[in-house]
Computed example of a mutant assay.
Amino acid sequence: MTTRTGTLTAATALAPANPWALVPPLGNLDAYISAVNRLPMLTQEEEQDYARKLKEHNDLDAAGRLIMSHLRLVVSISRQYMGYGLPHSDLIQEGNVGLMKAVKRFDPDQNVRLVSYAMHWIKAEIHEYILKNWRMVKVATTKAQRKLFFNLRSMKQELKADAAIETGDNTFRDTLTAQEIDSVAAKLNVKREEVMEMETRLSGGDVLLDPSPSDDDDKAFGPISYLTDGAHEPTAMIESRQRDVMATDGIAQALEALDDRSRHIVEERWLKVNDDGSGGMTLHELAAVYGVSAERIRQIEVAAMKKMKKALAEFA
């Protein structure tokens, strides 16, 4: 198992005096987590200022402040990958390496917060570490295989739970049915053959690197005890909020870009629902309202959609 000894203390070394240098070594994990959670967060203005100092003047003090204020993010993300039987401290170390890479490459002129940018680098570094250490033989080498690896295990648990509820049969089945394989392939947009191959790789061969219970340690757990809670995964939560904003404020702004007739057509066609649950007005109904052909209404609708797509792109 590969580790990067001293990664956390290296991050601490970049930081200036109190309170930034109060993070203890990783030897005491609870003390480390408690310390990073007490570190002050940066405002957007402070973050932009430090990022520019680092980019323009290679200011290591500024880099240290950016790193230290986001160590709690690494701890949060690393918890989601404890189900692979790897030490939490190692996951944090690898995540901190990803955070350092993100800080080094962060561009303050892109008008995004470092937290959003750093998530990709932190998770990428942890993913790479897990794939190198979870099995003696790598189980995922291509992009599609990596996608399956980090989703198939949790999805299997969900499918088995749903099946148990529907049938009342709590008998454990380790393999997926043909219908379940098709469901996974559709959700992940991969071929069913790829799902079957990854399931085979995951279910046999090497021994998992998880702690084994012993007579002296009744607190040892297997990977199943730490499955990721997808509902509270930071990236998924941010994406969900972005979709909500796009569906409200984004659509409203896009509609403002249309003339009255085009806006009315789009609203009647796509944004209104009748009392009986059916959709809005048809092309022929709108054609009767405006005294034009249904084809003309369709042309107006197509042009309006193009304008809205452009406005939504600018909003995003």
Results as ranks from 00 to 15, higher is better:
residue 300 I to Y: 12
residue 17 A to Y: 06
residue 233 E to A: 06
residue 11 A to V: 15
residue 92 I to R: 02
residue 200 T to E: 15
residue 253 Q to T: 07
residue 287 A to T: 06
residue 293 S to D: 13
residue 129 Y to R: 03
residue 61 D to Y: 10
residue 256 E to T: 05
residue 23 V to K: 03
residue 107 D to C: 10
residue 8 L to S: 07
residue 233 E to M: 07
residue 35 A to H: 07
residue 122 I to M: 10
residue 32 Y to E: 04
residue 161 A to G: 02
residue 263 R to T: 01
residue 259 D to T: 05
residue 121 W to I: 02
residue 311 A to F: 01
residue 258 L to E: 08
residue 267 E to Q: 12
residue 11 A to I: 13
residue 188 L to D: 03
residue 223 P to E: 08
residue 194 E to K: 11
residue 178 A to Y: 07
residue 225 S to A: 15
residue 276 D to K: 04
residue 303 A to M: 07
residue 37 N to Q: 11
residue 316 A to V: 04
residue 107 D to S: 12
residue 119 M to A: 14
residue 229 D to K: 07
residue 52 R to V: 06
residue 157 Q to F: 04
residue 153 R to Q: 11
residue 97 V to R: 10
residue 50 Y to H: 15
residue 286 L to T: 03
residue 203 S to I: 03
residue 66 L to F: 05
residue 108 P to N: 06
residue 204 G to W: 00
residue 37 N to F: 08
residue 285 E to F: 01
residue 84 Y to W: 12
residue 57 H to D: 14
residue 225 S to E: 12
residue 38 R to S: 13
residue 288 A to F: 01
residue 15 A to T: 15
residue 125 E to R: 13
residue 232 H to K: 12
residue 189 N to E: 15
residue 105 R to H: 11
residue 84 Y to H: 11
residue 262 S to F: 00
residue 102 A to L: 08
residue 247 A to N: 13
residue 121 W to A: 14
residue 245 V to P: 03
residue 209 L to F: 12
residue 173 R to E: 13
residue 170 N to I: 02
residue 151 N to M: 02
residue 34 S to K: 13
residue 225 S to N: 13
residue 273 V to M: 10
residue 127 H to E: 14
residue 13 A to D: 14
residue 115 V to A: 14
